[in-house]
Computed example of a mutant assay.
Amino acid sequence: MNSLIDVHAHWLPRELFGLPEGAPYAAMHDRGGELYLGEVPLSIATDAMSDVAAILDDMRVKGIGMRALSAPPFAFPLTAGERNENYAATFNSALAEQVSRSDGRLVGLGMVTLGTEAAATRQLEELAATEGIRGVAIPPLLDGRSLDTGVLRHVLTEADRLDLAVLVHPMQLPRPEWPDYYLANLIGNPVETATAVASLLLGGVMEALPGLRICFVHGGGCAPWLVSRWAHAWKARPDVRRASAVAPDTALRTLYFDTVVYDGPQLELLRRVAGKDQIACGSDYPFDMAEPDPARFALDGGLEAAELVAAAVGFLGIKGE
C-alpha cells in the first residue's frame, strides 16, 4: 500500500489563513489548537492543515507514498485584483518550496485568480514553469457559471495547452435551503460537482480538449448516479445534445475521479460508470469528511494498487519518474 498516490489532500500555510478577498467564508484561525472557519469549527487540528510534517506523518500511517497537495477550496481566489494575485503567488511559491523539500513524497496543485482570463493565463504559465507543480485546483462554479463557459472554461483550455492537470473541488457554497445539519457540505458539495461534470460533458468541452486531464473529487459527487439520466435526455432532447456529439455516459469515461465515496457499493458504481483506469486514490485530508483509511478503503473496495497508481500517474502527468 505504500506506493499509492493520494490526489486529493489539502494544505495552507498559516500566513494565508486570512483567505483571499471575496472568499465566501470568514477567515480561518486557530483556537487552542483547533481550526475554525470564521465561527465554524472544522473539527481538525490546526497543524493538520498547516504543518507539512503532520501531512507526511499521516501518509506514513495511512500507507500513502505520494500526495498531491492543493489549497482548501474556501482559499480559492475568485476575484481579480492585486491582493488576490499576491495571495495566489504566495501560496504557489510556498507550495513549490514544500514540494522541493519532500524527497518526492509531495507534488503540488497550485491556484490562480479567477477574475480575468488574462491573469489566469499568466498564472497558469507560471505554474507550468514551476518545478514540482503538476496542475491547478479550481472550483466547479463561478458567478453562477460552470466549466463550459467563461473564465473556468478558459482555465481548462489553457491547462490543456500547458499540460497541467486540473482538480475540481466544490466550495460548499451557502444556500438558504441548507442552513442546518451541514447540508451545504452533505448535499451542496456533491451537487456542485455534478453540475460541473454535466456542464463539461454536455458542453462538449472534452471533445474540444481531448487531452485535458481533469479529476473530480468525492467520486464525482452525484454524477455517477445521474449520468444515465443525462444519457437518456441526450438521446431524447435536441437542446440537451446541442453542444456535444458524444453521449455523456461515454464521455464520462475520459474523466478522472477519486475514491472518497465512503461505501463499497458506491465505489463499485463509480468503477462501472467511469472505468477502473480512471479512479485514483483520494483522502480529502485533513477534513472531517476525509476517508479515514484511504488506501485500505480503495483496495478493499476491489480496486487494484496498480490501477490506482496508473490513474494517479495519468492524471498528474508523471512520466518516467
Rank of each mutant, 00 (worst) to 15 (best):
D58W: 09
D57C: 08
W11V: 04
A194T: 03
P238F: 06
A233L: 05
E131M: 00
L167Y: 15
H29Q: 06
M66K: 10
F216L: 04
A75N: 03
M1G: 06
S100Q: 10
G81W: 04
N185K: 06
E97L: 02
A231H: 14
E291Q: 14
F76T: 10
F76C: 07
R67Q: 14
W178L: 10
W11T: 05
L56Y: 11
S100T: 09
V7I: 06
A80Q: 07
D249N: 12
A306N: 12
G204D: 09
G320K: 11
R105W: 04
L156E: 03
D143R: 09
A53H: 11
A129Y: 04
M289Q: 13
Q98M: 13
L78I: 06
D160A: 15
A231N: 11
V52G: 12
A96M: 05
A236P: 00
W230H: 05
A45I: 12
A137P: 09
S93P: 03
F216T: 02
A245M: 11
P265H: 11
V52H: 12
A243V: 09
S228E: 15
D249M: 05
D103S: 09
L299W: 13
D180S: 15
E268M: 13
P292N: 11
R105M: 05
R229E: 08
K276T: 07
A9F: 03
L12W: 00
G320S: 15
Y262T: 09
G211E: 12
Q278E: 13
Q123Y: 05
